[in-house]
Design a protein around this nucleic acid. Sequence first.
DNA 1: ATGACGCCCCATGGGCGA
Length: 264
Amino acid sequence: MKIATWNINSIKARMHALTAWLESAKPDIVCLQEIKTVNEGFPHMEIEALGYNVAVHGQKSYNGVAILSKLPFDEVNMRLPGDDTDEQARYIEAVVSTDNGALRVASIYLPNGNPVGDHGDSEKYQYKLAWMRRLRERAKTLLTYEENLVLTGDYNVIPRDGDTHNPEGWRGDAAFRPETHAEWNALKFIGLYDLFDHFDGRDEQYTFWDYQAGAWQNNNGIRIDHLLCSAQAIDKARGIKIDRDVRNGVKPSDHVPVIGEFAF
DNA sequence: ATGACGCCCCATGGGCGA
């Protein structure tokens, strides 16, 4: 089974690229981020016509996440627990049944967090850190279920120097600050396995290139789209692929798909 | 130091992204 994550930067602007990619890559489950539409604006019919069930947590103009699945959903949960005042659509979770038991997948659009403010005390950066703590609490709960669990999406976290073309240029950024790395490590320490580290781990394997200043042509990228797995899921994992060529397409997203292969 | 690019919207420029 192929489980993919892709920040598509608007579902409406990216339908041509999405449908072409679904037909060529043939993923079984796709976690989308930044769909940038309310649920009513999501192209349900076109996606369902390609053989996918659709679960959407939309929002007007910004954010928005969705899960596409060839298998029917047994359960869908939206919103990350821990802050009832949080209106941003950044989390959706779904359960499907496989021959190897329940599989739970979450599509995550972790807050960017910039600008961080003079001492990392901006509202946006504190929201990011709080959101990461909430994600860790949710993940702790989910791990007690002992299921095949894949938490994937745009984490807006650059794990290491080798995950950016220009480490010094990113040092103070919300994706690269020590507090962010501490939360990232804390999330993994509860018992989640990074699929990229498990099978690849090389430097310069980017998943995002800015639209500006020839970032793609200069390979000035960062790796911020990740798949984190429970022990049960990593045991059945078979590989990971960053679908880099998608960035060469017509009107591409600034992110490319990342695909995990599993023996579910 | 800034802007560059692309997306959104009760638009025609400002907010946001990373």
